Simulated scan of single mutants.
Amino acid sequence: MEKQRVDWVDIAKGMCIIFVVMMHSTLGVEKAAGAEGWMHYVVSFAKPFRMPDFFLISGLFLGLVIDRPWRRYIDRKVVHFLYFYILWLTIQFVFKAPGIAAEEGARGVVSAYLMSFVEPFGTLWFIYILPVFFLVTRLVKRVPAWLVFSALALLETLPIHTGWVMIDEFCGRFVYFFAGYAFAPAIFRAADWLRQRPLVGLAGLALWALVEYVLVFTPAPPSLASLLTPEAFMSGGRGGWSELPLISLFLGLAGAFAIVATSALLSRLAGANPLHRGLSWLGSHSIVVYLAFFLPMAVTRTVLLKSGVIADIGTISFLTTAAGVVGPVILYALVQWSGYGHFLFKRPAWAIIDRAPQKKTAAVAAE
């Protein structure tokens, strides 16, 4: 049973990372081209659940390791992500620095780099905020789960938009991470139940997709427009009902569970099935894709837009997304084949503060 659970969790993480790359790729292409393509509709549809599902999945296995000794917990849940954040922040700055220097000079580059330790840089904000979620969850683990969840649900609902990524994302996303941690047993039971009842699962997913579509693409009425924030029209948002308070929370939780249900159903496929194997591999190596997709994405976008070989913006967005997913996989394969560059995706010994052996269990998926 544990193997099945890990299978569907990896599949879910694989789907999540594809949606994240798709959003950055599509919006980047459209911004550069000054026009929208058909992929924008896919990004808009996924917006209510794109990050909630990623955070919910990230919290699923925390219950297995939350009582570790503090030193080991800090090593696995803080230092682990801090290492990759600093490394890939520096790598990204190698490519970003010339543009920043052209606009703000050398001092602007230094200032932007240092500021990135306060305000997470670009696409790396996810691994910047995860250690905060791990630490806060550990600190409140003795507080009744229903009370913490209720407080976090209230934070998600309140119009908190300070302009600071850490504050805004903490208030808007922590509820999903905590839900993954607090309700993991129920989520696993539900996934196993659906896995054995595919027709029920498919019917439920069809109903969810219909509701999601209507709420995303139906504009909020003028009488409620004051409840919409500028963020309601960013990252693929269309200012629909889905952006309104409470509805956004409902869709975030429902969409996250829809990914769980979809993954549980896909895990029924034989392990040799290409879709099963591909999503499982991407899920188990999601940090590889998340860290390294920015460069192949940017290169592909620039080449396709400047070459003019393909005119359709949606197709360019799709190909850019594919490059953003496949590029890191190729880089990872080259690292494994050559034996050089392991530090890009695996912490070296000097960056580990707890030497206790790490068991190869489902808990590794949370790290």
Score class of each variant (00 low, 15 high):
M1V: 10
Q4N: 10
R5E: 12
V6D: 12
D7I: 01
I11Q: 03
G14P: 06
M15Y: 03
H24C: 06
A32H: 03
G34S: 08
G34E: 06
A35L: 09
W38A: 12
Y41K: 08
V42F: 14
V43G: 02
L64D: 04
V65T: 15
P69Y: 08
P69R: 10
V78H: 04
H80A: 04
Y83E: 05
I91K: 04
F93D: 00
I100A: 03
I100V: 15
E103A: 15
E103D: 14
A106K: 10
Y113R: 03
L114Q: 09
L114A: 15
F121D: 10
L124V: 07
Y128S: 11
V132P: 01
V132C: 11
V140E: 08
K141V: 11
A153E: 00
L155W: 11
L158F: 13
P159S: 12
H161I: 07
V165N: 09
D168C: 13
F174E: 04
V175C: 13
F177N: 08
G180V: 10
Y181M: 09
A184S: 15
P185Q: 12
F188N: 01
R189W: 06
A191K: 06
W193Q: 05
W193A: 14
L194M: 13
R195I: 02
Q196E: 14
P198T: 11
G201T: 07
W208E: 00
L210N: 06
V214Q: 12
T218M: 10
P219M: 10
P222N: 11
G237E: 09
S242V: 07
L244G: 02
L244K: 02
L246P: 00
L253S: 01
L253E: 00
G255C: 05
I259K: 00
A261M: 05
L265A: 12
A270L: 05
N273D: 15
S280Y: 04
V288L: 06
L295C: 05
M297T: 13
V299R: 01
R301Q: 14
L304N: 01
K306E: 14
S307V: 03
V309W: 15
A311I: 02
A311W: 05
I330S: 02
I330P: 00
Y340C: 08
F345V: 12
I352R: 15
I353R: 11
K360E: 11
T361A: 12
A365E: 14
